[in-house]
Structure formats: structure tokens, C-alpha cells
Amino acid sequence: MERLKTRNGLKRRALLAYGATLLALQPMLSMTAQAQDYPAETMNYVVAFGVGGGSDIIARTMAKVIDDKKLIPVKMLVENRPGGSGAIGYSFINAQKGNPYYLGGVGVSFFTTPLLGKMPLSHRDFTPLAAIARSPYILAVTADSDIKTIDDIKTATGLTIGTAGAVSDPALLAHLLNKELGASIKVVPFDGEGEVMAAVLGKHLDLLFGNPNEILEQVNAGTMRALAVTSAERMTSLPDVPSFSELGHDIVHTQLRGIIMPKDVPAEAVTYWEGVLKTVAESPEWRAQYVDRFNEIPLFLNSREFGEEIVATSARYEALMRELELIK
């Protein structure tokens, strides 16, 4: 109602002040009016996973930065709707079709759960807004392992690698590694990153692909050695560790920390949030409280660029799942 009134008011004033010739500009004017009114209600950020997990930390840190810097005139609530490997939360966001007051984050399940065919949705049913950080993976071994370089993996036999989840980024990377090196490392899925780390530290497994955050902590403590990173370039926090691509292996895969909205939201809302998220991504607060704290790579991708990355990532997962015969 509020919005309609303003729009009519503007229309009337425009008519009075500039005469009928300006009438042609009316749709544009009303659009600016709407953009200025948005957001008028509380924003809801729906986390499709539980409290305290990676997706939750991103959501809450982002909400805090937006709140501290007063980037939006309304409140932002972070709400957890876990269950069904993300299916519950993502279905909920999807059901708010056209409503620009719902936000969500993109995790691995955003791609894999729809691909399993158990959720009648896919990445096409959401509107990408922007990506605000990038997280590479690091291939690591225990500090006293015989594996010192990527080449050692080629010659070694009977190696095992642990992955957090059967269909996940580390699993995808483990299969890529086997393909690229022509190796036959056995891939052992675990339930979480912590379990994999425990199994590697306890020498039940040889290798793992971990988040920069957890691996750096172990490297600094002298318990683990990083072999290579999956970003295109080296990481500033690990200047001595090469990237796979500089070693001549075609393994480039990073996790994008991106934000989405339901399908069919007004274009102004997308533009608005691109602006807000760009400010977040470039703010020292976000750098300090998220990017640097978790040793991720600073980044901003707008809606179009992020959308392209989503399509590419989904294709990569689809290929992996076909290879593993999870889908036909």
C-alpha cells in the first residue's frame, strides 16, 4: 500500500510540474521511487543448515557487518531451517517466489541435493545476487609423511584420501586428483571435516583436502604439511605452497561464498543488493571478521558473474555424480 501511494503521488506531481511531455518518463520515475522504498520490511536470511556451521557463520557475520555499517534501513534476521541436506531451507526460499525480502547462501548442497533428483528445484530456480569471498582447498598430509610433493603421490601406492561427505567439494577434488595424476588413491568419505582431520592425524588416512582455516592451524602447529592449493594462484597466507595449475595440473576449484534470492524478484532488488554486497565485500570489517579470520580470498562477483560461476559449478558436480554413477 505504502509503495502504491508514493507511486501515485509522484505521478501526480510529475504531471503537474512537467506537463504531459514527461509522461513518457513515468515508468522510469516510478521505478526509482520503488528502488528508494526498497527495502521497506525486515530482510530474512534463511540458512539451510544448523547454527554454528560454515553457512551459518557466513550469514551471521554478513548480517553483523551490514548492521554495524547501517547499510540497509531495515533489520536483517538470520533464520536456520535445516534438514534434508539443505532441501528444506532451499525449498522454503524458493516458495517465496518474487519476494525480495528473502535471502539465502550457496553451499555445496545447493548444487548436489537438486542433482540427486530429490528436490524439484535447481540453481535455475533462484536469483544470484553476488559472491563476497572465495575459499580454496588445500591438499595436505601429516608433517612426518613420506609424501613431500605432488609428484610423490604419483609414485606412491595404496594411498587413501578422506573427504567430508560422499558428494562434496573434497570428494570432487579427490576424483579430479586421481584423474589428473593418473593415480588410484582410494577415496574414503567421512561425515564431517573434523572426522577426516582426526583420521589423518591418527594416520588412518594419508591425504585430505581441507579448508584453509583448519589446515593453516595444523601447519602452524607443525603437525601437517600443505602440498598444493586449488585456487588459480598461491595463497598469501601460504606463500611457499604452489597451486595445482602452476604445477601443470588442471585442478582449479574454489568454493564461492555467494548470496541468492528467490526466483523472479524485481531487477531493482538485485541491483540494490549488488550494491550492498559490494560495500560488504570491500569493507575492512568483512575483511577482518570473515575473509582474514578464515583465511579466504577477498572477492566480489556481481549477479551476472556469480550466475555464470553457478552454472559452471553445477556442471562440474553433475559430471562428478555421473562418473560416480549417482545419477544417470
Binding site: 532441501a87 528444506i88 530429490k118
Partner: peptide, 15 residues
């Protein structure tokens, strides 16, 4: 493997 078992077509049983 990551495939659902005995889910009776109900996503809420995935976990």
C-alpha cells in the same frame, strides 16, 4: 555414496 536410503520419497528423512 550419498544416495538416499529408505526415504519413502520424503526429503525430511534425508538426514
Amino acid at each position: 555414496v550419498g544416495l538416499p536410503r529408505f526415504d519413502f520419497g520424503e526429503v525430511r528423512l534425508f538426514d
